[in-house]
Simulated assay, not measured.
Amino acid sequence: MDALNPDTPPTTIEPPPRPPRVWRFWGTSLWGLLIFVAMFVGQVAVVIYRIIAQGGELSAAGITHVVADGLTISLSVLAGLPMVLLVLWFAIRRTGIPFADYLGLRGTSWKNVIIGLVALGVLVGAWDMVSRAAGREVTPGFMGDVLKSAQEHSALWLLVIAFAVAAPLWEELFARGWLYRGWSETSLGPYGAILLSSIVWTVMHLQYDWFFLCEVLSIGFLFGYLRFRTGSTWLTILLHGLNNFAATLQTWWLAG
């Protein structure tokens, strides 16, 4: 027998490689909390830097003054993107699944893009009609002040990049990419994941009042459904970016 032959050493059986695994409910939730904290830390670091750069004090009044500044808001939104990407990379690397595959970063058809654009246009248009009928502002009032502040600092272009590119990227990677992927493969299923991730995404927009929060929630439902039906997070990133860009233009126009 070969096993008794000194010239032929016994063959060692290597254990099979660990199969890729998706983070389940609690893993997705805890990593999601860490992702949010990392984003928050990045944004707070920008606020502190701006206070020091302007010679202000690290007090409630100093923070309130700086946070209302358009340039500070732009830089803080931009700072959140690399922090989110970094923690996502660490979390997904442990699963053995490629980064793009885990987050649904795959292309989709032009038909799906058109359907998404039409659906988003109808939804936002309906909310605008309800807002006008109720005698409300079509856009949040503070957004006009933010735009004017950014324009005073010659940073309007930076604000557009932050709102229409950086924010849609990290928000969609977090909500429709990370949260949806993990929660949809639990007992929640796709529709439970759409509901829960949309609620989390809405809570991230507490700077708005109840009316705009309801609108954000409905948009979250639409984006979640499109993520489920197409499997593409790039689609929701595109739609999110176009929606924010249109909202920025609308606010700029209404603010004069």
Rank of each mutant, 00 (worst) to 15 (best):
C214M: 15
I219G: 11
T202A: 02
T233I: 08
T236R: 10
W183A: 05
F228M: 15
G241L: 00
L179D: 03
F223H: 10
A175L: 04
F211P: 03
Q207L: 04
N244Y: 03
F223N: 05
L226T: 08
W234I: 11
T233W: 13
G220Q: 05
T251L: 06
S184K: 10
G192F: 01
V200L: 02
I199E: 05
A193L: 03
G189C: 03
T236C: 10
E185D: 04
T236W: 04
Y225A: 10
R176A: 09
L249C: 13
L188W: 13
F212W: 13
T233M: 11
P190Q: 05
G231W: 01
N243T: 06
I194K: 02
S218E: 04
M204W: 06
L179N: 00
L195Y: 14
T230M: 03
R227H: 08
G224D: 09
L188M: 14
Q207C: 06
S187N: 11
G182V: 12
M204H: 04
L226R: 14
T251W: 11
S187H: 12
T233R: 02
H240F: 07
N244G: 05
T233H: 09
F211N: 06
Q207D: 14
S198M: 12
I199V: 15
Y180P: 00
H205P: 09
W234K: 13
V203A: 08
T233Q: 01
L242V: 14
L235Q: 13
A247S: 15
A246P: 00
I194E: 03
T236M: 03
S197A: 14
T233P: 12
L179R: 04
R181Y: 00
G177I: 11
E185M: 13
A175F: 06
P190K: 02
Q250Y: 03
I237V: 15
